[in-house]
Computed example of a mutant assay.
Amino acid sequence: MSSSQDLVQALKAELRAAGVTYAALARELGLAESSVKRIFAKGDMPLSRIDAVLAVLKMDFAELAARVVHAQPMRRELTLAQEQAVVADRKLLLVAICALSQWSFEQIVATYTLGEAEVVRHLLALDRLGIIELRPLNRYRLKVDKTFRWRADGPVMAFFRSQVVGDYFGGGFDDVAETLMLVHGQIEQRQATVFVERLQRLGQDFAQQHVADQRLPAERKRAYTLVLAMRSWLFSAFRDLKRVPAD
């Protein structure tokens, strides 16, 4: 959760934006200017004092909290050590994948054989790792950017390659709502970047549809896994057939 220091920093920014000096704020609060400076320098302010400052700024706490959230940098990837911590615990990795797909606490508990206390423990671990911000009633906010991805050569992707790829692509992809496509071609590199952005948006659409369908009864839903990829690559069975450009 946002710390009191984050709230105080947001208050400072709002005071600057409103042109309210410490001297002016002190007059409004009935305090000495030195006391106001000390309070802000300390960075630890009780909620009653925060409310008093918000009244001067004509803001409410929800607005301030929103400022704090928007000021937090969103992670685009984890450090190597953080990924190692996630992949070292199979259940933590599962909860991390569910969180990144925006599963609710109740849905995780109902779907997997993890007790409520166990899921809470893993959510707390993800909070410490900076993947989520855990909130009351086991709600959470993702703290990763929309472009978040596991490290290309990191431990999580290594786990997927060794444990998941064969299992996933070993399926028939022959159900009415399944498909497997392999499209090969040569395009401008700039356009390749555009296609990657489209794929990322498709992944976001899939995650948002999952959230929208959470209230549907179980009999109307089915588990799906969407895998998106694009890379400059030629199948190894054909590489020796590739014509070498003339000098």
Rank of each mutant, 00 (worst) to 15 (best):
S2H: 15
S4E: 11
S4D: 07
S4T: 15
Q5V: 13
Q9T: 12
A10K: 06
L11V: 02
L11W: 01
A13N: 11
Y22W: 10
A24E: 10
L25C: 02
L25E: 04
S34P: 01
V36L: 00
K37L: 08
F40C: 05
K42V: 05
G43N: 05
D44M: 06
I50E: 03
L57F: 04
L57I: 05
K58D: 13
K58E: 14
M59E: 05
F61S: 09
E63M: 10
E63T: 14
L64V: 09
A71D: 13
A71C: 08
P73D: 09
P73F: 06
M74H: 00
Q84P: 03
A85V: 13
V86S: 06
V87W: 11
R90T: 12
L94T: 05
T111V: 06
G115Q: 11
E118D: 14
E118I: 02
L124R: 15
A125I: 04
A125L: 09
P136A: 12
K143S: 12
K143A: 09
D145P: 00
F148P: 00
F148E: 08
F148L: 02
R151D: 02
A152C: 02
A152V: 08
D153Q: 12
G154W: 03
M157E: 13
S162E: 13
F169N: 01
G170R: 05
G172S: 14
V176I: 11
T179F: 14
V183I: 13
Q189Y: 07
F195Q: 09
V196F: 10
L199N: 11
G203H: 01
Q204Y: 01
Q208T: 06
V211K: 03
A212Y: 03
A218P: 00
T225S: 07
L228F: 00
A229I: 04
A229E: 04
A229D: 11
R231L: 10
R239D: 08
V244P: 01
